[in-house]
Amino acid sequence: MFEARLPQGQILKKLIEAVRELVTDANFECKPSGLSLQAMDSSHVSLVSLLMRADGFDPYQCDRNRTLGINLRTLASVLKCSSNDDIITIRAEDDGDSAILIFESPSSDRLSEFDLKLVDIDNEQLVIPDTQYDAVVRMPSAEFQRIVRDMQILGDSVTIACSKDGVKFSANGEIGSGSVRLKQSSAVDSEDDAVTVDLQQAVSLTFALRYLSLFSKAAPLSPTVTLSFSKDVPLLVEFRIADMGHLRFYLAPKIDE
């Protein structure tokens, strides 16, 4: 049997809200080490990779590897039936054709149970190579969300340039052009408010704002986001999930014709 109880159930709610517009169906790979998911968007331009380690659950039981194919829109609808402070348990019986979601109020006086039919998903898995990135930018996730939203009024692409001075986002379109430049923070009250650029070499790449906007829906998961860039490789956008794992998005660059 597979059973994973997540005391901070709202993490799962935020996760599914973050990916449900990008990915329709996904296979949750359940292993003794934890829960993972890898899926491409329907256009095969971006990739979502989720990891939730077993030690983030309490308790976590996985006797054998299981693949749970789940429609994320259905899952999102069901998760809306839980409260933010609910404890959420995911359970799957061996050889069963459904996943069971249990929502438990903090005082355990309310228990709801939903049985979700599993779906067969033909999911191509990709090997993600280890990459030494040219530039790694860390910034508040709310700032990332704001910049992506602001750039979208100008066009459908954004050029992100990293240098030793900081990071510059620029877009141009029919109505005009604009940019936002973030300097590396010198002194901040909280590390979560800082902008840092770890630079091996200056790099400038262009990406579709539509996807960055979808990625930024993960901002409620983590106060900070990390953007990793290298010339001619996909951008990595990473949100850490408390102390238990991460939600990563990879986006193929746009190439100047």
Partner: peptide, 14 residues
């Protein structure tokens, strides 16, 4: 104008 690359061009299927 820009050409959108696909992710499979960068990550090899298993």
């Amino acid at each position: 104008s820009y050409l959108q690359e696909g992710i499979v061009q960068y990550f090899v299927p298993i």
